[in-house]
């Protein structure tokens, strides 16, 4: 049974770029309907971990298991795996030559072989849910950053992924546009989407996370429910990081 499996298990994953060890043995699991937030300074390995799970970056050692299937094994069809793992990037990466609707229906039609009419219906339903229905024929250039990022989220959702990876999705946005994107993610969380979220928005993490992981220099130093991590962190590095965040007025 699919529902009994753990959506994502990461076991002792290591990754280096040349001499630079970015991930030094990360182990982590995400249960169904769980929202796990990765926090930590820039360069702590949050983005790299997400990119490894999406198989954009090959890992050096360890293994990653999605829904019971080891995706880092030899000879795995990466295209099939990626269809089940949605990822949203910091820089939206919408396709600029396609309208919103074309952006969303491309992968369902080409990768999942869903016929045009069904793909379109699915896309329109999602656009309506995220308040973007009137933008369906616009090109990405004509949308605000917040709208573009919500379209990117919809584009991922249209593949009906088992798990969503969000990579600092609000970092490239103007402050006044952050809320609309965070609200969209909050809605997803409430609907029970399984998510792994790298973020700098601490109050957001506190609100939606079932669990918060603090990454430091390629390792998970501490993890637990948000109340515990934010109110009484055990590790001095976590405390130090959070103090800096509070000093910067972001919590």
């Amino acid at each position: 049974m699919k529902s009994n499996r753990v959506p994502l298990v990461v076991e002792d994953v290591q990754k280096a770029f040349g001499a630079n060890e970015v991930l030094k043995g990360i182990s982590l699991s995400v249960n169904r309907h769980e929202v796990v937030c990765l926090i930590g300074a820039s360069g702590s390995g949050k983005s790299t971990l997400l990119r490894c799970i999406n198989l954009i970056e090959p890992i050096d050692s360890g293994r990653i298991v999605v829904e019971g299937e080891e995706i880092t094994a030899e000879g795995v069809n990466v295209n099939r795996i990626r269809q089940r793992i949605g990822i949203v990037f910091q820089s939206f990466n919408l396709f600029p030559h396609m309208t919103v609707l074309q952006n969303i229906t491309l992968a369902p039609r080409q990768a999942l072989r869903i016929d045009g009419k069904n793909a379109q219906e699915r896309a329109l339903g999602l656009l309506e849910r995220f308040g973007l229905l009137d933008k369906k024929h616009e090109y990405p250039d004509r949308l605000s950053g917040g709208q573009q990022q919500r379209v990117a989220i919809v584009r991922s959702l249209a593949m009906k992924p088992d798990i969503m990876l969000l990579d600092e999705v609000t970092s490239a946005l103007d402050p006044e546009l952050v809320a609309e994107v965070l609200n969209a993610i909050k809605e997803l969380a409430e609907e029970g989407m399984t998510m792994l979220v790298a973020t700098h928005e601490m109050s957001f993490a506190r609100d939606i996370a079932s669990r918060v992981c603090f990454l430091d220099a390629g390792k998970i130093l501490e993890q637990g429910p948000p109340e515990q991590i934010f109110k009484s962190p055990e590790h001095p590095r976590t405390r130090q990081f959070l103090q800096r965040i509070i000093a910067a007025g972001r919590l």
Partner: peptide
């Protein structure tokens, strides 16, 4: 990043080229 976005959606290398890279 355009290629990465296309591939991360599960498109094959050829599909990413055909629908995302070449038109641009």
């Amino acid at each position: 990043s355009q290629n990465a976005a296309a591939r991360s959606l599960g498109l094959t290398r050829w599909q990413a080229l055909r629908f995302v890279i070449l038109p641009q």
